[in-house]
Every structure is written in C-alpha cells, then in structure tokens.
C-alpha cells in the first residue's frame, strides 16, 4: 500500500506538468470521495467541531500507513471501509487530505 503511494509520489516528482495535473486530479477526485463517504463524520472540507471525529488535517506526511490501516480496518467508532473504497480511492483521499493538511 505504502509502496503504491510512494510510486505515485515518485511519478509525480519525476514527471512533467501533465503529471502534476494528474496529482491535482487525484486530489480533486479525493475531495468528492471525501464528500460522499467521510464528510458526514469528519466534517465539510475536512473541518469539524472536533467533539466526536478525528480532525484529518492533523495527519502528517509519514502517516500514510496509519491512514490506510484505519480506513481499511476501521478504528474506534469508525467502521471498516474494506470492499467499499478501493486502493485507488484511498490514495485519492490521501492526496486530498495531504493537500489540505495543517503540516504540509
């Protein structure tokens, strides 16, 4: 999973403007996936009132594995999204979250 992400990042680094466009597209897709599946608890545009759900903007660049594990297996009151969100969906969500993180 992590390697898939690194691969994606590497492609982004190595490639030209077209690929940067791809990275933006993936974040844009992640934004809509987020609105469909995550915003209910985690808040519109990643912002919530922090009474119940985790503020995803606090995720750091090296916490990709933590993110994927939580989404796949569920955590505390969060259900598992295994079989609902694909690996690509998770990467697009990660791209969106990282693009809006507190610590970029």
């Amino acid at each position: 999973m992590r390697s898939a992400f690194l691969q994606l990042a590497a492609v982004g680094l190595l490639c030209s403007t077209a690929s940067i466009c791809n990275a933006q597209a993936t974040a844009a897709r992640g934004e809509r996936l987020y609105a469909d599946n995550c915003s209910t608890c985690h808040g519109e545009e990643l912002q919530n009132n922090s009474t119940v759900a985790f503020d995803l903007r606090r995720l750091k660049a090296d916490e990709h594995e933590r993110f994927v594990t939580s989404v796949t297996n569920g955590k505390n009151t969060m259900p598992s999204w295994d079989g609902v969100l694909s690996d690509q969906d998770k990467e697009d969500l990660w791209a969106y979250i990282r693009a809006n993180a507190n610590d970029r």
Partner: peptide, 17 residues
C-alpha cells in the same frame, strides 16, 4: 446529528456531547 458532526461552526466549540 448531521449539522453538528458535519459542519464547522465556531459557535459550537464549547458544547460537549
């Protein structure tokens, strides 16, 4: 409910569940 969980609202920072 949906608004409180979903919506950033600076007025609700001090209302616990």
């Amino acid at each position: 409910g949906v608004y409180v969980m979903n919506t950033p609202d600076p007025n609700l920072k001090h209302t616990p569940a």
